[in-house]
């Protein structure tokens, strides 16, 4: 391209900068107003101690409460470990599905399969959870069927236990595991897999040494998204797990809404964020990946 000295070039440069700013503005506003601002507010709130009605002092009492009350950090650890389990299950189930969609299905079936994966997302979380309730409650479809078939002779309650919560969560987040996996596996040349066999590898070696390492960015990115979604989910654990779910988000909700203790709620919110971030940081370190080549890529 020819560049003319003086005004023309400057004008073009300015114009480009203006376009850049205009494009970037909504994004910056969004980040500032909906992410940064609330978090600053949360941090400020969480560092307040209530000494008398409407009298506050700066202090770490809310955080100390969390440490001194085992039920709080037990709930957080429980939420964390169950979220990890959900992530692992979603990966184990999602990987073969993604592999089938990306590598084995013909072009036409691929679109259809992707669509099928998307359908549950068209329905709101609440309706989906309600669907599970219809199926699993004492008077629900499965219990009635078992009684009708004569396998059991009294109604069974499938709701309100950990297994149900995990099943419900895995179901809810599955798509977020499958999409990044399909997109990385899609970029893998089939001849790479064939080369793996051709050079003497068996199915397991090819999977372990070629397919999984190649898909690693997708795996990590899917795991991060799924873990974040699960640890921060509220509706599914509450509806399917009831009072027994002891999900950490429930604690936060209770502090804010039921006990009207915004200071503690804010502290818990910050703690959840720190906790999930630490888990993800550890996960990235262990898998030798960076955020830039995982989430940013897929």
């Amino acid at each position: 391209m020819l560049r003319f000295p003086g005004g023309g070039l400057m004008l073009q440069k300015d114009f480009r900068r203006l376009a850049m700013i205009l494009l970037f503005a909504p994004f910056a506003l969004w980040i500032a107003l909906l992410v940064v601002l609330p978090h600053i507010g949360m941090i400020r709130l969480s560092l307040r101690e209530k000494v008398a009605p409407r009298v506050y002092e700066f202090g770490f009492a809310n955080y100390l409460d969390f440490i001194n009350e085992p039920i709080y950090w037990n709930t957080l650890l429980r939420t964390g470990s169950m979220s990890l389990l959900v992530t692992a299950l979603a990966l184990l189930i999602g990987f073969p599905i993604a592999y089938y969609i990306a590598k084995l299905a013909s072009n036409r079936t691929r679109g259809a399969l992707f669509l099928i994966c998307l359908i549950p997302l068209w329905v709101s979380d609440l309706i989906r959870a309600f669907g599970w309730i219809l199926l699993l409650r004492e008077t629900g479809v499965i219990s009635s069927f078992l009684q009708w078939a004569g396998i059991v002779n009294q109604p069974i309650e499938f709701l309100y236990n950990d297994v149900t919560v995990i099943i419900g969560l895995v179901y809810t987040v599955m798509l977020f595991m499958i999409v990044p996996l399909v997109s990385t596996l899609d970029g893998m040349d089939n001849s790479m897999i064939e080369a793996g066999y051709n050079l003497g590898g068996n199915g397991f070696t090819v999977l372990r040494r070629i397919i999984v390492p190649y898909a690693m960015p997708g795996i990590v990115s899917g795991c991060i998204v799924v873990f974040m979604l699960t640890a921060g989910s509220y509706l599914t654990p509450i509806l399917l797990g009831g009072k027994n779910s002891s999900w950490f988000t429930e604690q936060i909700y209770n502090q804010f809404i039921t006990r009207f203790n915004w200071e503690a709620g804010a502290a818990f919110g910050i703690l959840l964020l720190l906790f999930t971030s630490t888990v993800i940081w550890l996960g990235l370190k262990l898998s030798g990946q960076t955020l830039a080549n995982t989430v940013a890529k897929s």
């Binding site: 080369a195 051709n198 003497g200 190649y214």
Partner: peptide, 28 residues
Amino acid sequence: PNKRNVKMVFQHLALFPMMNVYENIAYG
């Protein structure tokens, strides 16, 4: 294919990008 002593150089070579040269050659 993995039991045949016939090796193949693929059209786009299909070198494994997640391994270095040494590991690529050592794979087989």
